[in-house]
Write a protein that binds this DNA or RNA. Structure first.
Lengths: 239, 239
DNA sequence: TAGATTGTTAATCGATTAACAATC
DNA sequence: TAGATTGTTAATCGATTAACAATC
């Protein structure tokens, strides 16, 4: 019997989510000509504690040198490899509204691995237009584009109403990873990975914290009245 | 001595992050004319387990009826209130490239609370242009716009190189909540809350899972050879 | 009352933190 | 060797899950 292959050399989800930030910090250090870095310095650059950084890196292997630190270039390579960025990931973007255009343009900035090979829309008026050096193709050509370039990641930048249909079409072509910018849940078969990015959710989380901060200040004000006016700056700590 | 006012009626972060999804699911139910829902049904619509949903809701209060379920409209109201969406949150967006335009347009779709009152850019060619019904103003007018509308949330949609300067300017006007779409860390004083949305990070997390899935399939293939060809569909479960 | 479903409890799981032994 | 810093251990903290008593 084969034992639990799905969690092979399991790197915790929380760690995976931080690896891109470490990689970005290391890239910035490389650009500044820094060749070696301690966990304390790198952690500060990435906005985490050094204990957390070392714990995270320990899941990938032993790439540091005790008493010295980490070789910036080597550590960057190992993180990139762990994330799969040493491979090629052809991407299609569906939906060429403002958001789709922004994503297509932005793709030029992405370091490593990701390559936008197809832009699709179902509006005939957009088909054929050149965006970021690619001609927009019609949704009906999705299967052709996908197989032509062995597309592995699909990005949905359509309105919510079309998102599920687009997702189904992406999955039909064999795509197993979907990034969804539409404000809706997608249902996908087992074996397909989806992530959602939603402006509205992010704003709502910010609003929650802002509101709590306001209520805290109000409560502290009342408490301060009782216990004499002792706190001149009533703005509470965030998060 | 005043006891721990900052975590007043603390709702866990993990719960707060899911409230927007519950609210979206409830809104969809309202639109379909559904007036009552069980934790089981709502959980399915939001893509979580019913145990998790009930636990999350229990942090807000007791808004359900045993044996019956939840009143859709009432629960939606309570979640909206908890998130602060019953208040008005004036928002400015800085950076009117494709992404900034997309965000400005998208704002029309946002339910409750958020109101885009200012669009800013430092490019004179863009200043004065009409986007989504608002005239773009110059960055130099930020302080005026912010005080005019009591702006509480700032959105950064500029390139990474300008993001920190923009953030400092936002904080200077008294803004205490910042949503950052630029691919960089921001440093802010205590009491300022920031969140970051980054395409590149999301793609990298997808790539990690895709790569692991490929490696798992490969490993299973080898193991399958040893233990006889018993698994006809070698695609492993995602996440 | 009987059936259904919530809200809570207790157990489990995973992530974070602090401290330090290993070692360059 | 002495100083510095990693990688790991153990303790703490927070989130998830399953089960069920409370109660409509």
């Amino acid at each position: 019997m084969v034992a639990d292959l799905t969690s092979r050399r399991g790197v915790p989800d929380a760690t995976v989510a931080r690896l891109p930030e470490y990689l970005r910090a290391l890239t910035a250090l490389t650009e500044r000509g820094v060749t070696s870095v301690s966990s304390e310095e790198l952690a500060a650059a990435a906005g985490v504690s050094s204990a957390k950084l070392r714990k995270d890196l320990s899941h990938l292997g032993s790439y540091g040198v005790r008493g010295v630190g980490y070789d910036v270039e080597h550590l960057a390579y190992e993180i990139a490899r762990e994330l799969g960025l040493t491979q090629d990931w052809p991407v299609v973007i569906v939906g060429m509204g403002n958001l789709g255009r922004a994503l297509a343009d932005y793709s030029g900035f992405i370091k490593g691995g990701f390559r936008v090979v197809g832009l699709l829309d179902r509006d005939p008026a957009l088909v054929g237009q050149d965006i970021a050096g690619l001609a927009v193709r019609h949704m009906d050509d999705l299967a052709a584009v996908a197989s032509e370039h062995s597309v592995s990641i699909g990005v949905i930048a359509t309105p919510a109403a079309s998102a599920q249909d687009v997702c189904d079409a992406l999955v039909d072509t064999g795509i197993r990873a979907v990034l969804n910018f539409a404000p809706c849940m997608l249902s996908v078969p087992d074996g397909v990975d989806t992530r959602r990015v939603d402006l509205s959710t992010e704003l709502q989380i910010l609003a929650f914290h802002s509101q709590r901060r306001m209520l805290d200040v109000a409560a502290e004000g009342v408490a301060g009245d009782e216990a004499a006016a002792s706190a001149p700056t009533p703005v509470g700590a965030a998060r």
